[in-house]
Design a protein around this nucleic acid. Structure first.
Length: 157
DNA sequence: CATCCAGTATATA
DNA sequence: TATATACTGGATG
């Protein structure tokens, strides 16, 4: 996925987009598994590219490819489901996410699930801040978290 | 204000 | 089995 911020790598399964990786440094070409790329994957990929580009430009994607989140545990999937309901430009705390799944004391475990999110940006783990308004962490690097939030007009302490 | 602690799901050693 | 996390709210000094 080529963007002004670098080249992301998208990985697909039979069910849809399964993973999205930040540009490690900026690998230019399009490394991919050998063999033929199914037509359906190419269609999904077009949507992925448009969506990622939109978010990085501070816009809300009009369409998303099907997301294959089957890889995680039941707990992680429930967290990711909640993340997807956070509207652009809004934030939640780890504790609020924990409450949303009925486990108000699992805020720390929520952090773990966010870190395990295979599809950052499209599954907006960057909209989760610590309860005191600070950033918390980010698997892709805090700079990305700051950039993404700034793009959505979010202010943090 | 600085620490500590329990509670929680996972990963790693 | 133990430790360390992308946490949080309450207790304690």
């Amino acid at each position: 996925v080529p963007t002004p911020q670098g080249v992301f790598r998208a990985t697909y399964s039979a069910a849809g987009l399964a993973a999205l990786e930040f540009p490690p440094k900026g690998f230019a070409a399009s490394p991919r598994a050998g063999g033929v790329i199914p037509l359906q994957v190419r269609q999904w990929h077009r949507i992925t590219c448009a969506a990622v580009t939109a978010v990085l430009a501070g816009r809300v994607p009009t369409r998303l490819p099907p997301l294959d989140l089957a890889g995680g545990t039941a707990f992680q999937q429930s967290i990711w489901r909640v993340l997807r309901r956070i509207p652009a430009g809004r934030t939640r705390s780890y504790g609020e996410i924990a409450k949303a799944i009925g486990k108000p004391n699992a805020s720390r475990a929520v952090g773990g699930a966010c870190g395990a999110n295979p599809i950052p940006i499209l599954v907006p783990c960057h909209r989760v801040l610590a309860a005191n308004g600070k950033l918390g962490g980010f698997s892709g690097g805090l700079d990305w978290k700051r950039t993404l939030l700034a793009r959505e007009g979010v202010r943090w302490s």
